[in-house]
Each structure stands twice: as C-alpha cells, then as structure tokens.
Amino acid sequence: MKTIPQSNQAPETGTFFTRDRNWHPPAFAPGYKSTVFRAPQKPLIAFPNTLSETTGPAFGHDMLGLLDHDLIHNFARAGESAIGERIIVHGKVLDERGKPVPNALVEIWQANAGGRYRHKKEGYIAPLDPNFGGCGRVITDADGHYAFRTIRPGPYPWPNGPNDWRPAHIHLSIFGTGFVQRLITQLYFEGDPLIPRCPILNTIADEKAVAQLVAHLDMDNSEPMDSLAYRFDIVLRGRRSTPFENRMEGN
C-alpha cells in the first residue's frame, strides 16, 4: 500500500462546526415507536475532522435530466401531468455562516396528492396517480438556489399511535461539500393543523427548530394562473474559516 507523502504543513483546515445535537431530534424518541429498537444506546464517539470528514462527493449539473426538477411531469405520460395542487418549492442552501452552498445536490421524494407513495411496501387505500412517480433532484446554482415543481402531497395515516397522521410533507436529502454535512430532513407546509400533532415532528424538542422545517407561502414567486410557491431554505453545517478555505474558494 502506497501512502501519499505529507508535508508538515498539511492543511487540516476547514473543519466543520460541531453539530448541535440538542437541536436535532434525539435518536431515541419513544413517541415515534420505530426509534425504540433502532436508536443506538451507547454514547457517540467524537474526534476532530480529518479529510475523511471534510471532503465529500461533488455532483455536476450534467447529471441532471431536463425534467428531474419537475415532479408534475417527470413520470407523466406525454401531454399529461400529475393530479394535485401545482406548487413551486424553492429556496437556498446555506451554511451556518449564511454562505450559499453552490453545486449542492438536493433530492426529494413525496406522496401524491392523495397521500399515497409509489412503493411496494405502501398499503394506504388512496389510489396511485399514474402520472406521478414522486421523486426529483436538482443541483443548486452559483447562489445556492434550488427550485422544484411538484404537487402538494396529501397527509396520510401511519401505524404508530391508534390514529396518527403525517402532516403533508416532502422528504429532502442534501449533500454539502463534506460528507459529515450529509442531511436528510422533511419540509412541512405553513398552517397545516397536523403539524403540532405529528409524533415525528414532536421528537424535536425546540419549537424554533420545528419552525425551521416549515415552508412559507411565497406569493411573490408564485406564477399567476399556474402555481403557488413555497419558500424553504436549508442550512448545512458550516466550515471554520481558515486560510486553506480561502484557497479553496479561489479554485
């Protein structure tokens, strides 16, 4: 095994700010029953970021198809479209320092307008929409902006408590520039009365953190006679400022 010679000034810089785990939901949260046998019970072990943590895969815009961002059409038959309230979901991917994150891959998935997922293991009685697949992806532009076209998903019941329903939500997966920024979350819709009743959202302790997962109606970016818009900004972990990082920006 050959190893890379290392200079004595090897840049171990641009490490990430420590994750505030009290802001995130805890692994073990019995109100959401599935966590009970899946939450690690031993303490997590910390160590300083190395290149294994500060590097991460990069994705090129050339991987995207023309309709990857458009869930209304990317599974639909020619000339047809998915059923439901047409919406635009857009926002910026930022880091904790407020800097836009360009070239971030954002993948989404969701139920159809009736609250039904296109998945083998899904048994809800609401029908599939033959024109709706339920997934899409985009890569943020130079300003960190992303935008999807989709339909507003329906709420759905799920086996947890005797009568638990998920608020309407869209699942999001986001890549930053380092592998430890990797994040999966869910976006909810402003004003949904199911939000305060959701056992999954309620695993989050701080109501300000819950509020961060709510997308807001954005009339200014809606398209008259076509689609309403919802704004949802995403914040990834930030890197500590270092000379090395400045050099990276010059690349």
């Binding site: 998935w109 998945h119 697949g133 699942h171 959202l201 997962l213």
Partner: peptide, 20 residues
C-alpha cells in the same frame, strides 16, 4: 450564526428518493 436544519427520519419510503 444560523442553526443547521434539523434532521428528520428518511422514513419507510426512502428508496423513492434515493434509489428510485
């Protein structure tokens, strides 16, 4: 400083988004 967006479970249908 902004706060990191809170994580949420990938849920039972994660494949739709990550491995369609």
């Amino acid at each position: 400083m902004l706060k990191e967006t809170p994580s949420q479970t990938a849920g039972p249908y994660v494949h739709i988004g990550l491995t369609p």
